[in-house]
Design a protein around this nucleic acid. Structure first.
Lengths: 125, 125
DNA sequence: AAAAGCAGTTTACAGTTGTAGCTTAAGCAA
DNA sequence: TTGCTTAAGCTACAACTGTAAACTGCTTTT
């Protein structure tokens, strides 16, 4: 995913992306609207603006059926790993382990997190 | 660190913060300017604007001597752990271990990182 | 067919950010 | 002291963001 695409997903737009990511299929504006209106209290116009911007940015695709259906061009995984690497670049001098060290030292990890991580980094074989 | 402070440090401003964080003491504008002019190619006016904004935001303190000296109010560690938690909240549903899992699965970790992490999460005692 | 409703498009508007110039006042050099 | 240099403060301005209204044309209802 190029820097040009992901870097431009703003906070509000991200809410729309999340919805699309969690949908199993392309969604018409009606459904997007219904959910975001409830969860975010946004006006229909606002939601339409956000969708349009995402389409211009190339991260959401629209297909014309009776009415437009929208689906994400980039996956949630792609986006989040991009965002994570971006954070590491910007504030941890590119060292991923510094990020994790920071999490550890700032108590950013729950007991469960730590248990999972022990599992994850257990020396296997 | 309140949300109001850290969330408002922008990318450009962050460059100024980094400089102040790495300085052992408060710095006069001249020194800040000299370094950022070289490393970033920014005009003096730009640098002054960024410093002023950081002061308004309360993340940089100024003390009047002959001339103003600037120093960070929040530490780099505070900031980076805040930014990390913010990322986890925004895109990993609050689960720190999901962030790390994402790093692992997207090959965001070098061999060295992994070695360090094994060490870090080794079951001790 | 006339009216109503709504998808899609265009326009709006204030706040933030990146980037920088202009003005004013004070210290230093001549 | 008289002007030059520059710190500090104020102003600028376009792009991006959050938020939304207005308009336009098609579909559906009466």
């Amino acid at each position: 995913m190029s820097d040009n695409l992901a870097s431009k997903i703003t906070d509000s737009e991200l809410e729309v992306m999340k919805l699309l990511w969690h949908a199993s299929d392309a969604l018409p504006v009606t459904e997007i609207r219904e959910q975001l209106q409830r969860s975010k209290g946004w006006e229909p116009a606002t939601i339409k603006t956000l969708i349009s911007r995402l389409v211009s940015k190339g991260v959401v695709r629209q297909e014309k059926r009776n009415v437009y259906y929208y689906s994400p061009v980039i996956s949630e995984k792609e986006y989040s790993s991009w965002a994570t690497k971006d954070l590491i670049t910007r504030i941890y001098n590119g060292k991923a382990s510094d990020l994790i060290a920071s999490l550890v030292s700032s108590n950013g990890l729950t007991k469960d997190d730590i248990a999972e991580l022990r599992e994850m980094f257990k020396v296997e074989e």
